[in-house]
Simulated scan of single mutants.
Amino acid sequence: MKLYALCDQDLLDKNDLCLEDFVAIAKKHDAEVIQYRNKSADISFIKQQLIELRRLFEGFLIINDTFELSPFCDGVHIGQEDLQKIDPDEKKAIKILREVLGKDKLIGLSTHNKDEIIKANELDINYVGLGAYRATSTKEVDNILADRLDEIASFSIHPVAAIGGVRLDDRFENVTYHVIGSGLL
């Protein structure tokens, strides 16, 4: 199992933790990737958090949605809705995003079912997030995949990161990364 740690600012605030605390926990569990997610702060605060995370963590650093800040990290993870805001045509949206980011930056895309995985197979991305595996306290989820997640992951040509309610002890055959946020704390 490879660990992809989701650092959600709201969760940090709720648990009275700083970035240094989170990174220490992520390192303790040998996280290879940290994704920073902040849905409420202004871009200058998010930028400062990315700079601090880069100082603290030598692995891959991903920003959630805010691709304008890609110079401060290794890539961006984008949701289906945010991709649609770039362009309604997924291929065109990823092409635009790739032009903005460049070839050296990672692009991850959230997926929720087999159809989205099949569409993602045709996109110039580096990995997919697939889920939610189970209910989670950090995000409202309508579609719980449960035991179907591993089967759906088998259709992806990209590495798959299991998202949503994933725990350290979960086991999958077709998943490269376990994305864990609140389960680390």
Score class of each variant (00 low, 15 high):
His77Thr: 12
His29Leu: 14
Leu185Ser: 10
Asp13Thr: 07
Arg54Cys: 06
Asp21Met: 10
Gln80Lys: 15
Arg148His: 15
Glu32Ala: 11
Phe155Gly: 09
Tyr36Gln: 06
Arg98Leu: 01
Val166Leu: 15
Phe57Gly: 05
Asp115Ile: 09
Asp115Thr: 11
Asn143Ile: 14
Tyr127Met: 06
His158Met: 11
Ala41Phe: 05
Lys39Val: 13
Phe72Gln: 09
Asp21Val: 09
Ile163His: 06
Glu32Ile: 09
Gly102Leu: 07
Glu122Ala: 14
Glu68Arg: 01
Thr66Glu: 07
Leu6Met: 00
Val23Arg: 06
Val100His: 13
Ile125Leu: 10
Ala41Gly: 14
Asn113Cys: 13
Arg98Met: 00
Arg134Trp: 10
Ser182Val: 05
Gln35Met: 13
Val179Arg: 00
Ala162His: 08
Cys7Asn: 02
Pro71Val: 04
Phe57Leu: 09
Ile180Ser: 02
His158Phe: 12
Asp10Tyr: 02
Ala5Val: 02
Thr138Gln: 12
His29Met: 12
Glu151Pro: 03
Tyr133Lys: 02
Tyr133Glu: 03
Leu168Tyr: 04
Lys27Cys: 10
Gln49Ile: 07
Ile46Arg: 02
Ile163Ala: 08
Lys2Ile: 04
Gly79Cys: 14
Gln84Phe: 13
Tyr127Asn: 07
Val76Asp: 14
Arg171Pro: 00
Ser154Trp: 12
Leu17Ser: 00
Gln35Phe: 10
Ser137Phe: 05
Glu173Tyr: 05
Pro159Thr: 13
Ala161Tyr: 02
Thr176Arg: 08
Ile51Gln: 13
Asp82Pro: 09
Glu58Val: 04
Lys39Tyr: 12
Ile152Ala: 09
Ala26His: 05
Leu149Asp: 06
Asp8Glu: 02
Lys119Asn: 15
Leu17Trp: 08
Asp104Ser: 15
His77Glu: 11
Lys119Leu: 15
Tyr36Phe: 15
Lys91His: 12
Phe22Lys: 04
Ile107Met: 10
Ser182His: 07
Phe60Asp: 02
Leu123Phe: 09
Ile51Phe: 04
Asp10Ile: 00
Phe72Gly: 08
Phe45Ala: 12
Gly108Thr: 06
Leu53Lys: 01
Ala153Tyr: 07
